[in-house]
Simulated assay, not measured.
Amino acid sequence: MVIGLLHRAGVRSTHLYLASLGTIGLCLGLWIRAKTVDQTQRGNAERRALFVGLWPPTMWLIGDSLREHE
């Protein structure tokens, strides 16, 4: 259902594969930035980086589903 809606909206598997790779870069950037903030804010910044780190596999699997649908 959701995959069909994404396909009709013009989203292709390549878009989600690239988004997956982009979120890996975002996670690394946030992790590096977490090392530059002061100690009181570091835990929150690291949690943010870990949260974003959960996105790449999700986007990759949605991209796989779209590829099968295409």
Rank of each mutant, 00 (worst) to 15 (best):
E46L: 02
H7W: 10
A45H: 14
R67Q: 08
T40L: 05
L28T: 09
T23L: 12
G25P: 00
N44D: 11
D38V: 14
Q41V: 08
L26V: 12
I32D: 01
L6E: 10
L21G: 14
A9N: 13
S65A: 07
I32P: 04
A19V: 03
Y17R: 14
K35C: 12
T58I: 13
R33A: 10
M1Y: 05
G43Y: 13
L6P: 04
G10I: 07
G29Q: 13
P57S: 11
G43T: 12
G43K: 14
L21H: 08
T14M: 05
A34D: 06
I62W: 03
L28G: 14
A34R: 00
T14Y: 07
L61F: 15
A9R: 15
V52T: 08
A19Q: 12
V52Y: 04
T58E: 07
C27T: 08
R8F: 06
G29S: 11
N44K: 08
T58L: 11
G43S: 14
L5C: 01
G4E: 13
M1C: 03
D38A: 08
L21N: 02
T23F: 09
W55I: 08
H15C: 05
R33S: 13
E70Y: 02
R33V: 05
G29A: 09
V37C: 13
E70N: 04
R67G: 10
L50M: 12
N44S: 06
R8Q: 00
L66F: 01
L61H: 15
T14Q: 09
H7Q: 05
R33T: 05
V2P: 14
L61Y: 15
A9W: 05
L28S: 05
E68N: 06
Q39T: 03
L21D: 04
V52F: 10
Q39H: 04
P56E: 13
W31A: 00
W60E: 07
P56S: 12
L6D: 00
G29Y: 01
L30R: 09
A49Q: 00
H15V: 01
L16A: 11
T40C: 12
C27N: 12
P57Q: 00
P56M: 02
D38S: 14
G43N: 11
L26W: 09
L30G: 01
L30W: 00
Q41H: 06
H15K: 12
L54H: 13
Q41D: 10
Q39I: 01
P56W: 14
L5P: 00
V2M: 15
H7M: 04
D38R: 15
G10Q: 00
P57N: 07
V52L: 05
A9T: 02
L50E: 04
T14R: 05
G63M: 12
R47E: 08
R48M: 08
E70K: 07
W55C: 02
A9Q: 15
E70V: 07
S65Y: 11
L6K: 07
R48D: 03
K35L: 14
V2K: 15
A45V: 02
G43F: 08
L16K: 05
R48E: 03
I32M: 12
L66P: 05
H7I: 05
I62S: 09
R47N: 10
L30T: 10
T23I: 07
N44E: 09
D64A: 11
A49S: 01
R8K: 13
P57T: 09
G53M: 02
N44A: 12
C27Y: 06
L21S: 06
S65G: 08
L18K: 04
R67T: 03
S13K: 15
H15E: 08
L16N: 03
T14S: 06
H69V: 07
H15A: 03
